[in-house]
Every structure is written in structure tokens, then in C-alpha cells.
Amino acid sequence: MQKSSNRKFFLFRWIDYSSDTGGIVAAICLLVVTFIVVYEVFMRYIFNAPTTWVQEMSIYLCMAIGFLGAAYALKNDSHFSITVVVDRLNPRNRRRLKIVTDFLGAIYSFVFIFKGMEMVKFAYDIEDVSTGLLAAPLWIPWLLVPVGGLLLTLQFINKLADDFSNRPK
């Protein structure tokens, strides 16, 4: 694993770093969610003073885990897939199929970039805010969508590069 990543072209190494960064931010969000939800319980039960921000904030943090961590999970090959059929193919066909599926993944992720940007712009233009007490401008959480899409698209391109370079002899 280490060896192959050393051989990688700097661009692809950089993509891996971007996925890692997404994973790190996701892990921090997870830690923060854990503690603020307990803080909420504490404030409500002990001090009879429920917070006005924990519920909404914890939703946004969990969305961040999903959108920003997805590329990291892809880099680690953690996304669930069914390999019963694929395992029976010969290496050449398996590689061909892998190229197709990674390409589909890249297209799917790309949809999140450009449609996500459209939604960010829309939320910004009509000044849409959340219904809770935070009244958060919604373009901010919406930004997670194109950013997550970008990380994913890059990582799929990375996977495609791997597919092309691992030509079976």
C-alpha cells in the first residue's frame, strides 16, 4: 500500500490528502456531536435550560460527516459492494468492469458538484434560512454538497487512474 502510494504521481497523492482531510474533518465533527448532545441533555435535565442550538447544529455536523467523509471511505474501499459475481470474472474483465463502475461513480459525484452549487446559489439568492432558532443561512450547510461531491469526484478519478495503471500482464 505504502509502496504504491509513493510511486503515485503527485496529483493523485494530493487527491488522497484531500480525501484524508475530509475524513479528519468528519471525525472531528463526530466528536463534537457526541459531546454537544450530552451537553444538551445535561443543560436540560440539570439546569432546566435547554439550548437553542444543539439540535440544529448536530444535524449539520452529521451532514458534514456524511458528505465530507464519503471520499475518505471511498479511498479506504469501505463502501459496501457485492463482489460475488465480480470475483468470478477473469482479471482482464474484472478490470474493465471496475473502470466502468468507477466512471459511473465519478459521474454520480459530479452531479453533486454542479447541482450542489446551483442549490447553494439558490439558497443564497433567496436568502433561505433554517426554521430553527439558529436561523442559519442555508447556503452554508448546502455548501457541504458540492464540496463533498468534489472530494468524491477527485477520489473516483484517482481510482480510475489506479485502474488504468494496473494493467494485467
Binding site: E40, R44, N48, A49, P50, T51, V54, Q55
Partner: peptide, 8 residues
Amino acid sequence: AAPDTSIP
């Protein structure tokens, strides 16, 4: 009162 928005 203590208004509570934390419960879905």
C-alpha cells in the same frame, strides 16, 4: 418558561 427546541 424554558422553551425547548431540542426534541424532534
